[in-house]
Design a protein around this nucleic acid. Structure first.
Lengths: 146, 146
DNA sequence: CAGCATCCTTCCGGATACTG
DNA sequence: CAGTATCCGGAAGGATGCTG
């Protein structure tokens, strides 16, 4: 495979080890929850969980629902989510093969929180856009932009 | 600057435009909420919002709280979040300079949803780890790996 | 202290081809 | 259909040096 996920090498001390100042949570780079959180919130992870919240789908159905995802990325994403116990893979050894993906109970709980965040952000996009306008105006003014 | 964010070019049709098959518009790359959502859920964005939920912090304080973030990434992340109206930057023109960052009310609302997700995932990491063990065992068995 | 600019490495992710 | 394997371009991001 290509890059089927970082092989769990959480401890790559590129800088000083100051993690001990923090409680054992996502804020420490040594914590495995950071990895799972990135699967969940990652570009394709979030969209895949969102798509699967609507029900059970086959591989190519899913690909159509998650707009823009490549075969490779969807495959990788599904593997990561399945490994984390958020997605269940049901394969029938028929010909042609048929495989269905669906959320596990845990995956459903995660997707719920995720969608709450997504929908909240969507609902406040008008405020975000206004803030962006202000920020860009101020920046243009400061740097004497054209 | 280096890559201070994609300059809002939401429509880069690498593939066919089939976004209309989806209900939520975040799933369409043409929607600006996609960008903001990625600032919020992105690797450093999520951790930065989480850290700022605890109060107001100076640049290097934040860097210490968000373990592993580089100066460049923290700077970039803070700019993106400030531009989206989620973070407020308070700079005093003293010498040496002192700059404090804190969440805006909107940022606080977003961080709340985000932390709900983060804490949920953290609280269920034991289940995730068990699932990973099962998955890896099954894979090893299938491929007869060592 | 609080950053920006530059270089350079890593790796994400798309295109393509092939397998069962 | 449901994937895996390989190649490779471009973006993410760390290290370093400099400014106010």
């Amino acid at each position: 495979m290509d890059q089927p996920e970082k092989p769990e090498r959480a401890e790559r001390p590129r800088r000083a080890e100051t993690a001990d100042a923090l409680a054992y949570d996502v804020f420490s780079r040594a914590c495995p929850s950071r990895g799972t959180l990135e699967h969940v919130t990652g570009r394709w992870g979030a969209l895949t969980l969102g798509a699967l919240y609507d029900g059970s789908f086959r591989f190519n159905e899913l690909r159509r629902r998650v707009d823009g995802v490549s075969e490779k990325m969807l495959s990788q994403t599904l593997h990561a989510l399945e490994r984390d116990g958020l997605v269940h893979r049901e394969a029938q050894p028929t010909n042609p093969p048929r495989v269905d993906y669906e959320l596990t109970p845990l995956g459903r709980d995660v997707a719920e929180r995720l969608l709450a965040l997504i929908h909240f952000v969507e609902g406040r996009m008008d405020e975000v856009l206004v803030a962006r306008g202000r920020y860009d105006d101020a920046a243009r003014e400061t740097r004497g932009g054209r």
